[in-house]
Simulated scan of single mutants.
Amino acid sequence: MESQQEIKVIKSSGKRAKFSLTKLRSSLKRCGADDHMIDKIVNSVRDELYQGISTKEIYNRAYAMLKKEKHVYASKYKLKKAIYELGPTGFPFEKFVSTILNYSGYKVVLDQQVEGKCVTHEIDVVATKNEKQILVECKFHSEEGRNCDVKIPLYIHSRFQDILLQSTAEETKPQECWVVTNTRFTKDALQYGSCVGLYLLSWDYPINDGLKDRIDRLGLYPITVLSLLSNREKQFLLSRNVVPCRQLIGDQFYLDHLGVSQERQEKIMTEINLLANL
């Protein structure tokens, strides 16, 4: 095998990048695996590396080993992929974002019609905290490797300005506008957002406060991470607007409706409680 430093992997975007053991270790550490398990997975992956291996293949290998060791490790490791699985429509992602805001102390309302000076705008989430109102637009991509370019914040900023022009009373005027995506923003998008005062939230931005960081802190994972549920069961739950795992703690009857055995339900609820840090 070629030395690890020379191995180039193919990312979901199709671009090549140098394989990083450090990043692999970091992602395994974040999901809760101990040093022994991390070393075991890293050594296994390193032994199977070859020039042009896909990041998907590396992920699948690590995921399989984590799942065999402990389901909750695999569920946490799957987080990024699980958010893509909230599609194909963007509504489950909007609900998931609203839940994150709600658990962060905001009062939230989804799908609101807000009057602008020129036209009426449909806003994904209106959130209020300490008498401060923010408008939140969610941009969901179900295709891995796609990023939000500068056209997205340009468009959303223009809508926000139209709403501000219509809002005459200070107490009813929104103070902030957020753009939230499950992918990443391009460099130009980040630069424009910073310049005009938009708050941009993506998978890993702001640094140490991106979606992945907020989800880990809150223990608020989407049901699509659950390794003990089939794809059919996950889609059923999403169709019933069950998006965060925590929701099943109070609505376990959905599992009854799916015909999930009591023994399996207990395993699923154990995993959910571990994810929720309960």
Rank of each mutant, 00 (worst) to 15 (best):
S54W: 09
C245V: 08
P92L: 15
T120A: 13
L165Q: 09
K132M: 06
W178N: 08
V125M: 08
I156R: 01
L258P: 07
R46V: 15
Q5F: 06
A276L: 00
L237F: 10
R246W: 02
E144Q: 10
N147A: 13
I41V: 12
S202A: 11
T22F: 07
M37I: 11
T186M: 14
K151V: 14
A33C: 10
R246F: 01
Y77H: 09
V242Q: 13
F19S: 05
L274T: 00
S12Y: 04
R232G: 06
C148F: 07
V119D: 13
S230G: 04
Y155N: 15
I163G: 07
A169P: 00
G87F: 03
S27L: 11
Y103E: 14
D204Q: 04
V9H: 12
D256E: 08
F96A: 05
I223D: 02
I134G: 00
K187G: 01
Y205K: 03
N102H: 08
L165H: 07
L110N: 10
Q4A: 02
M269Q: 06
P153R: 11
I58T: 05
G250F: 08
T172H: 03
K67N: 14
T55Y: 01
G250L: 11
Y77S: 08
K68F: 08
S158N: 12
Q235E: 12
S158P: 01
R214A: 13
V150H: 06
V72A: 14
V196G: 04
N43F: 02
G219F: 03
D124P: 09
V108K: 02
E115M: 12
R61L: 15
Y77W: 03
R240E: 15
L248C: 12
Q133S: 10
A189Y: 04
E263D: 10
E94N: 07
K132W: 01
G87I: 02
R217V: 01
S12V: 15
L28C: 14
D216K: 02
G250S: 08
T224C: 03
K15P: 00
D188P: 14
Q4D: 06
E94H: 04
R16Y: 13
L228E: 11
D111V: 00
N273C: 15
N60R: 11
K80P: 00
N208I: 05
F140K: 09
K212T: 02
Q265E: 03
S158F: 07
L24G: 00
K67E: 01
E94L: 06
I100R: 02
L49Q: 01
